[in-house]
């Protein structure tokens, strides 16, 4: 981890806990764990994948990152600002942009450019600069040609890229994608992921919440959650080779990794934990033809 020590920490969670208040059948208040005792740090320029089964606390964690939820206990710091400090909340939300699962639920205007302008308008950015920001954001997601289209007529992937542009127009340092690819078809997913990686290359910190293990492979760090707790952190390979952990949290390694691992263990001369199924196929051919 020598690489990360040189990087600046942008998001820090110190023993962060969030309980949802719910009511039992007899009317007494009960606390439901959202996340509990989460301590972790995310560095500038990281591409972090956050995984775990439905209801494990991923989305709660995401909402803690920009103060949509404030921790019941512990602290969440964004660039050193405490999300519990009401004075900082605007600056925090400017630093952490979020895109959610359903593109149709996060649309505010009937024309793409107006929709993207919503964020900066609310921040009181001068109109000339708004224009500049909107077009820059649309450029970043490769959607400039649709500036005057109606969002309702776009495909899922395009809508989601518009939602990302809306977040970018606020010029955040961190982009949180909370299952933003879940409802898209394969092409739409590819488009959104390509944009996320392109932004990351330009220096954006990206936090990707996903159920698609194939999307996790390209992250530089994976955080695994289970029942509100962070149960493991590591590189994709460290996580995907930990079969015991995967089983416990109900995840599965990408198929290529699974097959190469099985074959390697059974004494085949193949690269262990290979993510490239075709390369694995080639190796197996060599082995069988000997």
């Amino acid at each position: 981890m020598s690489e990360t020590t040189q990087q600046n920490v942008i998001i820090e969670l110190q023993n962060a806990t969030y309980y949802y208040k719910t009511f039992a059948e007899d009317g007494t208040a009960v606390q439901d764990i959202g996340v509990e005792g989460v301590t972790l740090s995310i560095c500038e320029g990281d591409f972090v994948a956050l995984v775990g089964h439905n209801g494990c606390g991923k989305s709660t964690l995401a909402k803690l990152l920009n103060g949509l939820l404030r921790p019941t206990n512990g602290k969440v710091l964004v660039s050193g600002m405490d999300t519990a400090d009401k004075k900082c909340i605007f600056d925090i939300r400017k630093s952490v942009g979020m895109v959610f699962q359903n593109p149709d639920n996060q649309r505010v205007a009937s024309i793409v450019e107006e929709d993207v302008a919503f964020g900066p308008e609310n921040l009181g950015v001068p109109s000339a600069e708004i224009r500049e920001r909107v077009y820059k954001a649309l450029e970043q997601v490769n959607m400039v040609e649709f500036a005057h289209s109606a969002p309702s007529r776009l495909s899922g992937g395009q809508k989601q890229r518009i939602a990302i542009a809306g977040a970018l127009a606020i010029q955040p340092k961190v982009l949180v994608l909370d299952e933003s690819t879940a409802m898209l078809d394969p092409l739409g997913r590819k488009e959104v992921l390509a944009v996320a990686h392109q932004l990351n290359k330009q220096g954006m910190t990206v936090i990707l919440i996903t159920h698609f293990m194939e999307e996790v492979l390209d992250a530089n760090k994976v955080i695994v959650m289970n029942n509100g707790h962070v149960v493991s952190q590591g590189t994709p390979m460290e996580i995907f080779t930990n079969t015991k952990l995967l089983e416990e949290v109900g995840l599965r390694a990408p198929r290529a990794v699974q097959l190469s691992h099985l074959l390697h263990q059974a004494g085949f001369a193949v690269t262990d934990n290979n993510t490239d199924i075709k390369m694995l196929g080639g190796e197996v051919c060599q082995e069988l033809k000997r």
């Binding site: 775990g52 089964h53 439905n54 699962q101 879940a182 409802m183 159920h211 109900g250 995840l251 599965r252």
Partner: peptide, 8 residues
């Protein structure tokens, strides 16, 4: 299965 985790 859209939107479900691998186990689901």
């Amino acid at each position: 299965t859209a939107g479900l985790d691998p186990q689901g």
